[in-house]
């Protein structure tokens, strides 16, 4: 089950040009400190899993990577987030361009109420890409392992698919514009084991070409698919407010088999949270 090459992975801190990284990143919603002082680097074309108990700020961090948090009132950050070496919150950065390169798939499948075809073609049309849409739709659906199931009904509404198919449609939609990074917030949380396995295989395939950062509550899933794993935890301050922080980050093998922190060991072995 384990990929033979995985144990040769260097620790993420040694990767020389991570595609995404944070430096002393703290994230606030209003006065509330949701995530404290995170410094981590995410290597290119690998799968990085974010794990940890509910409310420790995994989704919050994920949304920081493509500036989706900008849409939330009261959101602000301290510290820095880098895309390669470019500060994502820098003066000249265009959030729309960021999201075009750093795509996202959400926990709940959210196809547009349009046909399957139009769902996939949406990005290319919105960006005014001069491409063969038929070819784009087929390629994206094939990559998302959905083509065979829907090729005869591309005109039906995306909402009429099953949950697992909808989620693969959303993944196909995300990869249709060829982003560099795909952020996934518990992409399998609403799926059955078979759909889940399909998506896991899909992610392993996609990792040849794309960088994937995924949140998951499923320890087996993290150990099956992730190259790197980051464990977050939440800690109450003096006033009883819980802020998340990064406990430990390393290769998945190291986190699961040789965790350095007691909290990590207890969490990954299921004795906690």
């Amino acid at each position: 089950m384990q990929e033979p090459t995985r144990s040769d992975l260097p620790s993420p801190a040694q990767v020389s040009w991570p595609i995404l990284s944070t430096e002393n990143l703290s994230i606030y919603y209003g006065d509330f400190l949701a995530l404290r002082d995170v410094t981590m680097a995410i290597p290119e074309r690998k799968i990085t899993a974010l794990i940890g108990p509910s409310g420790c700020g995994k989704s919050t961090l994920l949304r920081c990577f493509n500036r989706l948090n900008d849409l939330i009132d009261g959101f602000r950050i301290q510290g820095q987030v880098f895309y390669y070496k470019q500060d994502l919150y820098g003066e000249t950065v265009d959030a729309v361009q960021v999201r075009r390169r750093i795509g996202m798939v959400f926990q709940q499948p959210n196809p547009f109420p349009k046909s399957i075809y139009d769902n996939i073609a949406f990005g290319a049309r919105a960006l005014g890409l001069q491409v063969d849409l038929d070819e784009l739709v087929e390629r994206s659906l094939r990559q998302a392992v959905l083509w065979d199931e829907v090729k005869d009904k591309l005109k039906t509404n995306g909402l009429e698919l099953s949950g697992g198919q909808q989620q693969r449609l959303c993944i196909a939609r995300a990869i249709s514009i060829k982003p560099d990074v795909i952020l996934m917030d518990e992409p399998c949380a609403s799926l059955d084991p078979i759909s889940t396995l399909k998506i896991e295989e899909l992610l392993r395939d996609l990792a040849q070409e794309y960088t994937i950062v995924t949140v998951t509550h499923n320890m087996q899933q993290a150990s099956r698919i992730a190259d790197f794993t980051a464990f977050f935890n939440a800690q109450a301050d003096e006033k009883g407010k819980r802020s998340g922080y990064l406990v430990e980050y390393g290769t998945t093998d190291q986190i699961f088999q040789d965790p350095q922190e007691e909290a990590t060991r207890r969490y990954v072995s299921g004795q906690f949270g």
Binding site: W17, Y83, K85, D94, Q97
Partner: peptide, 23 residues
């Protein structure tokens, strides 16, 4: 940590794309 110029050309292009606010 590496400096910006150490990154491969692909990364250079990507950075330029996000950092140049709409033409």
């Amino acid at each position: 940590m590496a400096t910006a110029s150490d990154f491969p050309p692909r990364a250079q292009a990507a950075m330029a794309a996000v950092a140049s606010r709409p033409a």
